[in-house]
Each structure stands twice: as structure tokens, then as C-alpha cells.
């Protein structure tokens, strides 16, 4: 029975090792944000600069804006950093957020086949969408309650297209993040509304290119909000506020402006100080 005892103690030792492994306590905050800020590489550029300046690590959970706000409502984040003004203002009005501060903007663009079968190319987003609908050209929607999805629905409405009636096989509701939706669009050669940051960082472009850009309606504002400690007492108020103060500070704004892919700036700082 010696071997049996040996076996059991080896098992127990493994268990202890697994339990004790690397549990260094570090100072960190949790930020729920959008896939666009993560997948465009902005956070990979920005956060090391903040971490060096403050000693606070930032753990980012990248989700669609709707999901990111819901996560914060449950108290699972200290700060939200998203892009859907109406939803953000609702979040603050409900008492889950302390205050919404604007940080930066980029813009939405319509991506589509370079051959542009729907003749949607141009500067006018509403006209472009009307033509896509009229041609019943394949269009991929995020369909995930993200900031980009909310913007897409606003544009369809403004274009006078009643999606409930117009929806057909041409309109593909994918329920996925920006990247996966772009992968789908690339493989179907479909039109899609995207944020410029994710598009610039996106590698699997297939035969897609920018079809509509430059309309002032395509402006895409990002905001940052501290989760209300009155609702969730464990929120790391001081460190979360430090992060917010930094992204809207001159240093933070400069760091945002400096992030470029292929010489092209992705986000334009516009915090009001």
C-alpha cells in the first residue's frame, strides 16, 4: 500500500501547487470597453503609457458597447470606455455611472465590394444605404447591440428604410463583434458599417474597400464613465478616476493622437478640459 499512499500524496501536492500558483496582488482596475478600442490596437499602445505613469494596471474586457454597459451595471467593472452617447447617458441617468466625459472620436465608414454593385459610393451615408437596400446587395449587420450596431440602426431609420419590412436574405444579422462581422463580410463580399479603427487594423480584407466616408453624420464619439460607487461600493473609485483624469489630460490626449497604423491616425482626442 506504500505506492497508494505515494500516489495520493503526489495528487495532493499537485492540487496545492495549482492552488498556490502565482497569486501576486497587483494594483489594477477593470475597464469594460469595446472591441474597436481593443482590436484596433489602441489599448495596446495607450495602457502601457498610463501604467508606467501611474503604477496602476488596467485590465480591459472588450465587448460590444451594450454588453460593456451591462457588465458595469452588474458591478463587474470600475470604468466604462464606450461609444454610444444615448446609451451612455441612460447609464448615467440610471445612477450606474458618475459622470460621462468625452475622450476622442473617430468615424464610421461603409465597407463594401470594390466593384460597388449597389453604386453606393460617395459621401452621403443615407443615400448609400438607400442604394444598398434598393439593390438588395448583401449587407452584414453586427446585430449585437454594440455602439456600431446602434449607429447602423440610426442610419437606416434616418435613411427612411424600415428594416422590419425591408429585411430579407440580403440583410445578414450576424450577432458578432466587429472583427468576426468583417470576416463574414469579406467572405460574402458584402457591405458593412465599420469603425475606421478596426478596419485599419483588420488584415483579412478580401476584395473589400471603403465605399462611403466623410459624412459628418458618421462621427463616432467615445466617452468614459466611472461606475458609481454608491451603487457598487467595491468600485475602485480613486484609481478609476485617476485613469479617467489621465485619458482626458494633455498627456493622455497626446498619447491617443500618436497612435497610428500605416501613418494614419485612428482616434482624434477631443476631451473638454
Amino acid at each position: 500500500m506504500i505506492s497508494r499512499r505515494l500516489f495520493c500524496s503526489a495528487l495532493a501536492a499537485c492540487g496545492l501547487l495549482a492552488a498556490a500558483a502565482s497569486h501576486a496582488q497587483e494594483r489594477f482596475i477593470t475597464v469594460s470597453s469595446t472591441t474597436s478600442t481593443e482590436q484596433s490596437g489602441l489599448f495596446g499602445h495607450l495602457l502601457p503609457i498610463f501604467e508606467k505613469a501611474s503604477g496602476i494596471k488596467v485590465r480591459v474586457i472588450a465587448l460590444g458597447t451594450g454588453q460593456a454597459l451591462d457588465m458595469a451595471r452588474r458591478g463587474d467593472a470600475d470604468v466604462v470606455f464606450v461609444h454610444d452617447k444615448a446609451a451612455e447617458e441612460k447609464f448615467v441617468a440610471e445612477g450606474f455611472g458618475v459622470k460621462r466625459q468625452e475622450v476622442m472620436y473617430n468615424d464610421f465608414i461603409v465597407i463594401g465590394p470594390k466593384t460597388d454593385p449597389a453604386k453606393a459610393a460617395g459621401k452621403d451615408i443615407l443615400e448609400g444605404l438607400r442604394r444598398i437596400e434598393a439593390a438588395k446587395a448583401p449587407f452584414v449587420s453586427r446585430g449585437d447591440k454594440s455602439g456600431t450596431h446602434a449607429a447602423e440602426l440610426r442610419y437606416w431609420k434616418a435613411a427612411g428604410v424600415d428594416l422590419d419590412k425591408a429585411k430579407g436574405p440580403w440583410y445578414r444579422d450576424t450577432g458578432s463583434g466587429m472583427g468576426p462581422a468583417l470576416n463574414t463580410a469579406a467572405s460574402m463580399n458584402a457591405y458593412i458599417l465599420a469603425d475606421r479603427g478596426t478596419w485599419l487594423a483588420f488584415r483579412n480584407r478580401g476584395d473589400l474597400g471603403i465605399v462611403v466616408e466623410g459624412d459628418t453624420k458618421l462621427f463616432n464619439q467615445y466617452g468614459v464613465i466611472l461606475v458609481n460607487p454608491a451603487k457598487h461600493p467595491h468600485v475602485k473609485q480613486a484609481d478609476g478616476q485617476k485613469f479617467i483624469d489621465w485619458v482626458v489630460s494633455a498627456d493622455g490626449q497626446k498619447a491617443i493622437a500618436e497612435y497610428k497604423i500605416g501613418g494614419e491616425q485612428l482616434f482624434f482626442p477631443n476631451a473638454r478640459r
Binding site: 482590436q39 472583427g179 468576426p180 470576416n183 469579406a186 483588420f202 488584415r203 483579412n204
Partner: peptide, 9 residues
Amino acid sequence: ALETSKGDL
């Protein structure tokens, strides 16, 4: 999954 999202297949 993340790299697939970025289109870096």
C-alpha cells in the same frame, strides 16, 4: 479567437 477577430488568420 481574438486573432481571428482581427482578421489575422
